[in-house]
Design a protein around this nucleic acid. Structure first.
Lengths: 214, 214, 214, 214
DNA sequence: AATGAATGAGAATTCATTCAT
DNA sequence: TATGAATGAATTCTCATTCAT
């Protein structure tokens, strides 16, 4: 690591490179915060610029198609981050139940932290069907990789055919998302974090049994 | 022509209220159809007028606050219609399981028929929190009435305290809505109507047991 | 005529119909006047609205694609008007020389009256090649019709094959336009109207001889 | 690497001014090429920078007023170059007809090679009348010099008064430009290079006769 | 000298809403 | 009542230009 410190200094001296990521993150943060307050279609790029105290030109420099691009690029970044976190769990957990609980918890944290983005995403797919398809593909690829990995490292998963495993993961992922979104953005189903997570955990077990039987 | 003029006057005096409701229904239909095609925030009142071949003035005559009013008034009407249909079932069904299946089926049909409206409603609540509260109130009142009625006419429900019964109904209602919306507008969870309904039916039974135990 | 006066009153009572054409003409006039003053690319739709004291929405009501549409629609109208005027001449003139002089005079008047439009047209074709093609087609159709008519009614033209006649007209039309545009918008070639018209008239005779010989 | 550093320093001290002119030429070339593709008002300095793979700062270093300056400076340079080429002819040709043909050919080549610039110039003069006046002055000075020279070295020109000669040259220059521009940028008058040049050549002879007689 | 991030005025365009007819 | 022309604030987006590095 100490060998790298010099390189780090050289890299950070590269013009604007640090500011650049800071600006992008500021745009994300401001945009999704405003969406939480005023809703997607009442949040304009000019609002974001004014609120973030940057110029409108800067937003269009990094996101040439405006709002649509902010969502699309955040989607790409957030998927990677989220899946990285999920992956860390999968390797270390051998018990399915334990793994599921972690998975649900991560999804829950993700929803809490990205509420504005999730609302934006759901608004954007209304007029941009490609966005939804992109997401479906990413989700498929991720769970395919996860299934392959789990089947290689874990005896409990080895018995289930890969295709079935992937389909099941995607189903569970969508089921949890459906309920979490409703709980967080439409109407609270339970009054504490623990309760909703426990409910989802049991619901997933139920669903897995249901899927197995049918 | 002169022969007809008297008839026309007579007819129009009768037709008047019918025409009004026809126009309103045409506005609803056109608005929600356009939303399905282009999304909520790309559907303007002017578009609706052009597409429905009526004047923009007419829309503002019946819905003085535009899009917001269309959604709000349709919400009021649709709630009444939907609850009427549910009520017809509740009176005639004594078996809980049977009742649930009907309830789910009605919710499913409602979602299918009102997809555009449901998308519109979810977009509108982002910037109009009152709309969501109105809905919560209506839902509460309806299930309170339903609970009272069921407890009076049905032995199976009499054992459950009214408050608990109402809460449970509301929970089930929201749970089903969450999953149906995701299934119909975000990503298909099952490939046939029967499968999703059967899954929901079992899911509700599971949830009722889960709620009873906790 | 007196029989028609009643009809005229009825027609003018038709909502906005008179204002509509007035507004359109006002937009044309204002737009082309501003272009003369500030050039095409420094004349914005908002400028036109402000200068004409109408709202920007009105411009986009009649010209949904903005500046491009103003030019395109004026082009269509002006071609018709111009060709109508030319046609009136062709029928009444049997002497080719006399006909040419009228033709040149009409083109000259057209250029003088539509200087702003001609500048706009030449700017617009830079990024809208269709506009130029449309014009070529219209010019071709007009001169084809004119050639047919002249060959039917006039002995002097009967000897020239139709195709040759059309090509010659188009050539002359373009040659005159080239020189008139330069004279009026780039640099004066002669100091009086009479001189430029006389020069063009002789130039056309020269060109016709040149074309006949080659 | 260290072996080369000295050479690099030596070279860069020599290359410096050459690099500067290379950059300027690259800007000219890129700008006028883009104008041919997209038109003057859709070609921005930022586009030029991106397309030429230099920074926008470099463009503003050499052309502090942006597009306007590029055109103005190219205008100055190109006038000199063009007039140099014309001058070489004038000295070597004693026959007026022969001289004219060379003159027309040079103008034609100039138009072909500088199409983008010519479009740009005509767009720029719309909002920058000084540009047009500068050009008129340059043209006047050039033809005055040329007239003086020709009258000194050539018997055929000696008979014509200087003022008349200058005016005639300017007239011919503008006439040819008018037709060439139309032919190359609006509508083809002839299908080969030879034909348009022959036509122009005869046209100029005609015009000279016409001017002499009036 | 060269870079390119950043700016913000201003252009194009949309859309909810009003109002004369 | 019904119409749809008219409005103009608000939105998206571009582009000439500046300036820190």
């Amino acid at each position: 690591m100490s060998n790298c410190s010099f390189i780090v200094i050289i890299m950070s001296s590269k013009k604007f490179s640090r500011n650049k990521q800071e600006k992008i993150d500021l745009i994300y943060k401001t945009f999704f915060t405003l969406i939480l307050k005023r809703g997607y279609h009442k949040t304009s790029t000019n609002h974001v610029a004014k609120s973030a105290k940057i110029s409108i030109g800067t937003i269009y420099k990094y996101f040439p198609k405006g709002k649509e691009d902010i969502i699309r690029k955040y989607f790409e970044e957030s998927m990677k981050h989220f899946f990285k976190r999920i992956n860390l769990i999968s390797v270390n957990n051998k018990n399915i139940r334990e793994f599921l609980n972690h998975f649900i918890l991560e999804l829950y944290k993700n929803h809490l932290e990205n509420k504005g983005y999730i609302i934006a995403f759901r608004s954007a797919i209304q007029s941009d069907k490609n966005l939804l398809n992109s997401q479906k593909k990413e989700v498929f690829i991720f769970f395919k990789n996860m299934a392959q990995e789990l089947r290689m490292t874990n005896e409990s998963f080895k018995q289930i055919p890969e295709k079935k495993l992937v389909e099941t993961f995607i189903f569970i992922y969508n089921l949890i998302n459906a309920i979490l979104y409703h709980h967080l953005s439409i109407m609270e189903l339970f009054d504490t974090d623990e309760k909703i997570i426990d409910f989802l955990s049991n619901l997933v077990i139920f669903s897995l049994n249901y899927l197995r039987e049918t």
